[in-house]
Simulated assay, not measured.
Amino acid sequence: MNAKLLEVARVFFKLGCFAFGGPAAHIAMMEDEIIEKRKWMTRDYFLDLIGATNLIPGPNSTEMTMHCGYERAGKAGLFVAGIAFIFPATVITAFLAYLYVKYGQLPEVEPFIYGIKPAVLAIIASAILKLGKKAIKSAELIILGLLVLIASLLGVNEVVGLLTAGVLGMLYFYIKSKSISDFKSVTPFIFLFGIQATATKVSAIKLFFIFLKVGAILYGSGYVLFAYLDAELVTRGLLTRSELIDAIAIGQFTPGPVLSTSTFIGYQLSGFSGALLATTGIFLPSFLFVLILNPFIPKMRNSKILRGFLDSVNVAAVAVMLAVLIVMGKETLIEWQSIVIALIAVLLTFKTKVSTIWTILIGAILGFFLLTFTK
């Protein structure tokens, strides 16, 4: 393995071990690690990757690791980055699944998660400020971002918001520039995003194909994942709803993507081989989508009409991150303990050069002590 691939593996394995707080937090940590510290690419291009990634199915933050790996070390880097990021979550989840199957309960981790949640708010806020400065290039984009923010807070699906913003922005900036010379370059882009996933028949490797289908069509949060898995597993009698709820909970409080839920369920149903097949199935579409999409992103930026689309999607993506921050803040900052942890995290994030990973660790430790000794 060459030096760049080793670097990619180290970076994303480390992030995979500490990536708590959902996609917005994961992307914020990547921004700190990839842009601030290592300067693998410009912040503008990082924004382009975020905007494009939001438009395809699958776990956005995991797909961002693949894009970053691709940019640093080519196609091999794509696979190394994705696998390195996913690996810690799947190993931890498989171990927890073993404990769950053997003893019927999960270890007590709530005090640590209590502290991590407010800590990641500061990390997300920092990334929003940095990315927002690059995304906001005109008054029109500010207005578009505000509209997407309002729509997101009102419950409009994030993908609908992003696509609508992209199309409106593309049309507006096209009319403004009155340039149609490169409109033909839209064709491959439209074809790419017009691909529809088709359901696969259940076979002897049932778990693999169930999770492959979910991974190919999944948009949205853990709640959307719950709905998909409820339809695929609970209604078929493969899993009880309470078992599914426990599996989703595992995905929420382990590091990395919430889709590590698949590892837990796979182990429950078919042991180690089931965990491996389910995990492979749900993440495989993301590798393929990114492999297809990545070469188109520079072409989109070079096209006048698609540049307007990308700029609009980018500012919309920052608006969606801000909406996530607001919602998370309302749900998290409800007690003095969480507010104290959030304030300390803000100081660490904005006033020091402490790594985001250390901020998360400090938040976890503070959460444990504050929740254990003050409640």
Rank of each mutant, 00 (worst) to 15 (best):
R301A: 06
G51D: 02
S152C: 12
I83H: 01
L288E: 03
K330D: 03
A84G: 04
S203N: 10
G74H: 07
M30I: 07
P111N: 11
Y219G: 06
F287T: 03
V290K: 11
E31F: 03
L15N: 00
F193R: 13
S177V: 00
A227G: 14
F173N: 03
I124Q: 01
K102W: 04
I34Q: 00
S312I: 08
L348N: 07
A231I: 06
N302Q: 13
P188A: 07
S203H: 03
G51Q: 06
A197G: 05
S177W: 00
L171G: 04
S262E: 09
A275C: 14
K133M: 10
T349Y: 02
D311T: 06
F253Q: 11
G215Y: 01
V11R: 01
V11T: 13
L99D: 07
L347W: 14
L291E: 00
G115W: 02
F18E: 00
L288F: 09
L153F: 15
K299N: 07
V214K: 06
P298V: 07
A231D: 08
I362Y: 15
P107M: 06
C68W: 02
A52H: 05
G169Q: 05
P59F: 01
A151T: 04
A231R: 14
V318H: 14
V315H: 08
N314W: 00
L49A: 08
G220K: 13
I86E: 01
I205T: 09
F289E: 08
I341A: 15
A275V: 12
G145F: 05
M300S: 10
I250E: 05
L325M: 03
A9H: 05
F287R: 04
S312L: 09
V160Q: 09
R307Q: 04
F18W: 07
Y98S: 13
S242N: 07
A197R: 09
L47P: 05
F189T: 12
T93E: 08
L238K: 11
A342N: 10
A323F: 15
I205G: 08
L47N: 14
L162Q: 03
W40C: 05
G115M: 12
I27Y: 06
S242C: 02
I92N: 06
L293F: 13
L147A: 10
G21E: 00
V315N: 10
V313R: 10
F368N: 11
F20E: 01
S221K: 05
K75D: 00
L348M: 15
L162P: 01
Y172E: 04
K184Q: 01
G58R: 12
T359Q: 13
I50Q: 08
A135D: 09
F226P: 08
A127D: 12
D311V: 10
I245P: 14
F208Y: 07
G161E: 03
S312M: 09
K39C: 06
R43E: 00
L6N: 11
I50G: 02
V346G: 03
M170R: 12
A197M: 04
V8I: 04
K37E: 02
F173H: 08
F289C: 13
M321E: 04
I334A: 10
L370A: 14
G251S: 15
V167R: 11
S286L: 01
I180D: 05
M300I: 11
Q196G: 01
K213A: 05
